[in-house]
Design a binder for these strands. Structure first.
Lengths: 103, 103
DNA sequence: CTTTTGTGTAAGTCATTACTTACCGTAAGT
DNA sequence: ACTTACGGTAAGTAATGACTTACACAAAAG
């Protein structure tokens, strides 16, 4: 369920670009929308999805709302990768692991 | 573009389950379909998507087609995570890194 | 050779989604 | 107070997607 949210959030190119735009510094909705080819409400909707995936944080500052990267979402992703091979490590998984170390 | 394919492929729960079902050993379409709540053609279609995302391999063996995990897709994912912070590391990214090491 | 098994693909349907414009409330500037 | 700036939400639309059944074809079995 959480995986679905995170993968789904990053699956859309526009949404991924918005997410990446926040990497260097927190930004307001307008600041983000100015660099994106979609309307301002569209950006708001994307930010909502990113928020539900625990990929961004919001902080209301005066008139504006500053969005920033939140670690939690990406950590879910990393744990998926880390757990993929370790869970119930069978013969085939071991074989793959061997390939990973070899190549 | 590649990111879109991989994230999109793993965003669907059914497709993710199919992918995970291949972790322990290669399986035929029927073997997979037997454990999944969707029809056999649906599984075929999911496998096609996973293939295009470089997440699975196919090998025709006699009558059947054995699907197996392919490393490439997940490696794309891992590199996305790894490059996320390191690319154009700004002040804010450094701050996040500090948080990651602190918490 | 005929039948069965295994799988991909076509076509159609229903739900989801990414987008737009229009509208509303709230905070800041004059 | 009035106006402008900021941003969330509603409503509608066009595209995408996940699923089904029906069909086609190759390999295995009889």
């Amino acid at each position: 369920m959480t995986y679905t949210k995170v993968f789904g959030a990053l699956a859309d190119p526009t949404r991924r670009h918005i997410f990446e735009a926040l990497r260097d510094e927190p930004k307001s909705v307008q600041q983000i929308a100015a660099t994106q080819p979609v309307s301002r409400p569209a950006v708001s909707q994307h930010l909502k999805v990113l928020q539900q995936a625990h990929l961004v944080n919001v902080e209301a500052v005066g008139n504006r709302r500053l969005y920033s990267i939140k670690r939690e979402g990406l950590e879910v992703l990393r744990s998926y990768l880390d757990n993929f091979w370790s869970d119930a490590l069978g013969a085939y998984a071991a074989e793959i692991t061997r390939q990973m170390n070899t190549n």
